Amino acid sequence: MTSTPAQPAPSATGNGTVPGDLTPVHPVGEPVVIASGLQAPWSILRLPDGATLISERDTTRVRELLADGSLREAGTIEAAEPNGEGGLLGLAFLADEAAPGGAGWVYAYFSTAIDNRIERMPLAGGPGSHTLGAPTLVLDSIPRAGNHNGGRIAFGPDGLLYATAGDAGDTANAQNPNSLGGKILRLTPTGGVPDDNPFNTLVYSFGHRNPQGLAWDSRGQLWASEFGQNTWDELNRIVPGANYGWPHVEGQAGDAAYIDPQQQWPTDQASPSGIAIVNDTIFMASLRGQRLWSIPVTGPSSTAAPTEWFVHDYGRLRDVVSGPAGTLWFVSNNTDGRGSPAAGDDRLFQVVIGPS
Rank of each mutant, 00 (worst) to 15 (best):
I238Y: 11
N200F: 01
G228S: 13
G182E: 08
H248N: 15
R209H: 11
T281A: 03
A276C: 13
V193F: 04
N279F: 03
I277K: 04
Q269L: 11
R209N: 07
W265S: 10
R209Y: 05
T190R: 00
Y258C: 14
F283G: 01
P198Q: 10
S301V: 06
A257G: 08
R219G: 05
V203Y: 12
T298S: 13
L214N: 12
G241P: 09
N197Y: 07
L287P: 03
Q269A: 14
G254T: 06
V278S: 01
Q269P: 00
I295L: 12
T201C: 09
G289T: 06
V239C: 10
P266W: 13
Q264D: 00
T201Y: 03
Y204T: 15
G251V: 00
F227N: 15
G207P: 04
S294C: 11
G254I: 04
P189S: 02
N279L: 05
K183Q: 11
D196L: 08
G181T: 08
A270H: 01
E250V: 02
D217L: 01
W223A: 09
L202T: 04
K183W: 14
Q290M: 09
V203G: 09
G274V: 09
L187V: 09
G251A: 14
G299C: 01
L235P: 06
G245V: 10
V239H: 13
T231R: 14
Q264C: 00
F227T: 01
H208P: 02
P247Q: 07
I295G: 02
P211D: 04
G289W: 12
Q229Y: 05
P240C: 00
N236T: 05
G245R: 03
R219V: 06
A256Y: 04
V249R: 00
I238T: 10
G220L: 07
G274L: 07
P189N: 00
A253V: 03
S301E: 15
F206T: 08
I259G: 13
N200T: 13
S294I: 06
W265T: 11
Q290G: 00
N243P: 14
D196C: 08
N210K: 06
V249G: 00
N200P: 03
D233G: 10
Q252A: 15
W216I: 04
L235R: 14
E226V: 03
T190G: 09
V249Q: 08
G220Y: 02
G207K: 02
N200L: 08
S271N: 12
P300R: 15
F206Y: 15
W232D: 14
P198M: 06
P272H: 08
Q221A: 14
V278W: 05
Q212R: 13
I275F: 07
M284D: 10
S218L: 08
R186D: 00
R219I: 00
G207W: 08
G299F: 09
F206E: 11
L187F: 12
I282H: 10
E234Q: 11
G220C: 12
A215W: 13
A253I: 10
F199T: 00
I238M: 04
A224I: 01
S218W: 07
Y258M: 07
G245P: 08
R288H: 11
T188K: 05
I238S: 13
